[in-house]
């Protein structure tokens, strides 16, 4: 290999969308190729784990690690890539805060496996065969990664230098970060301080062109139930939009096309728990009359009625941030550990 800086990109528990987003920087990918040597990138190039194991420590200059830590393999790879990389980037929502895989922290490992291998209508598994970490066959012993009880974010397993949020991160933001790294590597400019990069420090609303007024929400609608006014804040119209509690940087893409922000860039800096913040914010603007107008019982019913118009609140408010939230997981039947 040449003496160009080494780039790696790995997927742990993820959907592959982050790789697509990275390739979606279009012709800039040629610049990336011109600057970097690809050291490990299972999506686009054939490398084996033993290749990585063979690298000296710190051999990889930048490793973009996407995907959550769901299995023992994910965790092993996180440790391996941490050891072999100078800069480890938690790339995308799964690595950053658990994302969709971490919603299974709301239930047990057994329930998740049951859904996948047994209860799903398209599954036919009469012998109730589940993947086993260790299986004896005539040819010898087979090993499968252990499926963890709790999904973790990358930074809950290894030290992370940078985080690029998003599900997936926006290509222009990816390119901006890669450019910064390239400049640093080629011109000796110092790298930015560690933390979240490729995003704004203010909530999505700042980038949203919709007109905003004082909010009073009487009920929520699902997107198919109403045609939203194109110019007014979606939340005001009763469409769940997490833009108020979500870090900007995407350019408010979803709200601009009439779809409420789903919150994929995670919490705004300084907020510990995006979902909890969303709940308090929504609770604050629910239209249940003036204080003292309704008696306690009636008030509770009104509040219940409004909250009942939000299907799957946990999945809505913690869609991306479950693993990284203060809750991290629910305690089910005494299970509370990974």
């Amino acid at each position: 290999m040449s003496d160009k800086p080494k780039l790696a990109m790995y997927w742990a528990s993820s959907c592959g969308g982050c790789e697509i987003a990275t390739l979606n920087i279009h012709e800039h990918i040629l610049d990336v190729d011109a600057v970097f040597d690809i050291a490990f990138f299972p999506c686009i190039a054939d490398f084996k784990i033993k290749d990585v194991q063979g690298y000296p420590d710190g051999y990889i200059d930048v490793c973009l690690f996407n995907g959550a830590i769901r299995t023992s393999e994910n965790e092993e790879m996180a440790h391996l890539l941490r050891q072999k990389s100078k800069v480890l980037v938690a790339f995308g929502s799964c690595a950053y805060e658990g994302c969709i895989p971490a919603l299974s922290n709301l239930t047990t490992r057994e329930a998740t496996l049951n859904t996948v291998y047994l209860d799903n209508p398209t599954i036919d598994n009469p012998n109730r065969i589940f993947p086993q970490p260790v299986t004896e066959v005539p040819e010898g012993t087979l090993f499968l990664p252990v499926f963890y009880h709790t999904v973790k974010s990358l930074d809950q397993v290894v030290k992370v230098d940078y985080t690029i949020p998003g599900c997936p991160p926006e290509p222009h933001q990816i390119w901006a970060v890669l450019q910064a790294v390239v400049t640093a590597l080629t011109q000796g400019v110092p790298l930015p301080p560690s933390g979240v990069v490729g995003a704004s420090n203010v909530a999505v609303c700042e980038e949203c062109p919709r007109q905003r007024n004082v909010k009073k929400i009487k009920r929520f609608y699902r997107p198919y139930e109403v045609v939203p006014d194109p110019d007014i804040c979606l939340l005001e119209q009763g469409l769940m939009c997490l833009g108020i509690a979500t870090r900007g940087g995407c350019g408010a893409l979803c709200p601009q096309v009439g779809m409420g922000c789903r919150g994929c860039y995670g919490a705004v800096p300084g907020v510990e728990d995006q979902g909890a913040k969303m709940v308090t914010a929504i609770a604050s603007v629910m239209d249940v009359g003036k204080p003292g107008e309704l008696d306690e019982v009636k008030l509770e019913q009104e509040i219940e009625a409004i909250f009942d118009t939000i299907p799957d609140p946990a999945g809505t408010f913690y869609r991306f941030s479950m693993a990284h939230s203060i809750l991290r997981r629910t305690r089910v039947n005494g299970y509370d550990r990974g």
């Binding site: 700042e206 939340l235 833009g243 108020i244 900007g248 604050s284 603007v285 204080p291």
Partner: peptide, 15 residues
């Protein structure tokens, strides 16, 4: 001010 996105959630809340 730098952190305020102008979402206006708080605007009607102050007693």
């Amino acid at each position: 001010e730098e952190k305020c996105s102008g979402c206006r959630i708080c605007n009607d809340m102050c007693p």
